[in-house]
């Protein structure tokens, strides 16, 4: 295991910039944090999960599918240098894994893998949460892991690409530090239990329609819950015809919108606020469970933070469990 001091990180990432397009958490002018290039603001690797969709680095809000010249010839976006992303939390990583599988399953989504495949993903863990709180270890599923421990970052590699990068770091971690990392406690998120209980309720169909009506009256259809979710992948398609070319792009869509499933003839299987709110929660907690054997919500808290009226998935799950009792999964 390698070690690098906090102050050396910027230099290290700069060094990588010759081979990679760097995305790291930076401090924004409004005091928030987000993925940015190394020169977009002060490096802010610590501070916990970023508030917006971390998987947007591979699946941006608006992404060109292809362009076509006036002669009909296909133009595909130039491949930029591979991405190096540091700043996923272990939780974000589970979300990434979830959508990696989604995009690979059946028809492989080459537009997603265009950037995903060549990317290097580095996780952050250890004492780098909000106010120095402990974040869970990734223990794999990424190329590199940066583990914060008293002013230093221990660096662990899990892939060849990760190894190659770790080699650039001269410092070797001390045996004590390695032992300390080994002894870090697992972290239990109490909300995860609530989500599981809610999932169990939905899977046995124990939640009546009236519940969804009660919740949905609060929804202002901002679409934010979907747009910050690391595992939401729905998109719409748009064509723009310029004088010299056609551009077809896809952009994030939201199942909280009436037009999401409205058909040309006007029929709409999701035609009410209540049906749409049910679909949002049901999809993550029941449908994904049935399809993938795994919940589609990893309880990152983003939708609860962005929802202007406070009906993110955890808030709803809490109310559901309070009203309809708790079932133990399995």
């Amino acid at each position: 295991m390698k070690t690098i001091a906090d102050l050396e990180l910027v230099g290290f990432f700069r060094q990588l910039a010759s081979d990679y397009d760097i995305r790291v958490p930076v401090l924004l002018p409004d005091g928030g944090r987000a993925f940015g290039s190394i020169d977009d603001g002060a490096l802010a690797l610590g501070g916990g999960a970023l508030p917006t969709k971390p998987t947007a680095v591979f699946f941006p809000q608006d992404d060109t599918l292809f362009a076509q010249g006036s002669g009909g010839e296909l133009l595909v976006p130039e491949h930029s240098r591979p991405l190096f992303i540091a700043g996923f939390t272990a939780l974000d990583l589970r979300c990434l894994k979830f959508i990696d599988r989604f995009f690979a399953d059946g028809f492989r989504d080459d537009v997603y893998f265009r950037t995903r495949e060549s990317a290097v993903v580095a996780t952050v863990s250890g004492y780098c949460g909000p106010d120095g709180a402990l974040l869970p270890l990734a223990n794999g599923d990424c190329d590199l892991e940066f583990i914060a421990l008293r002013g230093q970052w221990l660096v662990r590699a899990y892939s060849n690409k990760g190894e190659a990068i770790a080699l650039l770091i001269p410092g070797e971690a001390s045996a004590d530090a390695v032992a300390e990392v080994g002894a870090l406690a697992a972290i239990v998120n109490p909300d995860e239990e609530v989500i599981k209980a809610a999932s169990a309720l939905l899977l046995v169909d124990a939640v009546p329609d009236s519940f969804w009506e009660e919740i949905a009256v609060n929804c202002i259809q901002c679409s934010g819950c979907n747009l910050v979710c690391p595992t939401c992948t729905c998109f719409g398609v748009q064509d723009w015809r310029y004088a010299d070319r056609l551009e077809r792009s896809r952009m994030w869509d939201s199942c909280q919108l009436d037009g999401f499933m409205r058909e040309a003839g006007g029929h709409n299987p999701l035609g009410t606020d209540a049906l749409r709110t049910r679909r949002r929660i049901h999809h993550k907690l029941a449908a994904d469970m049935t399809k993938w054997g795994e919940l589609g919500c990893f309880v990152c808290g983003r939708c609860d933070a962005t929802c202007p009226t406070g009906i993110g998935i955890v808030a709803i799950a809490r109310q559901m469990v309070a009203q309809y009792g708790s079932f133990q999964a399995g």
């Binding site: 998109f235 719409g236 869509d253 058909e263």
Partner: peptide
Amino acid sequence: LERQMRCGVGKCGHCTIDHLYCCQ
């Protein structure tokens, strides 16, 4: 069954019926 479909290949999410993808 018919649903709104934007991709036809199980990615866009418009055609889902609970866990089923109408296009797949």
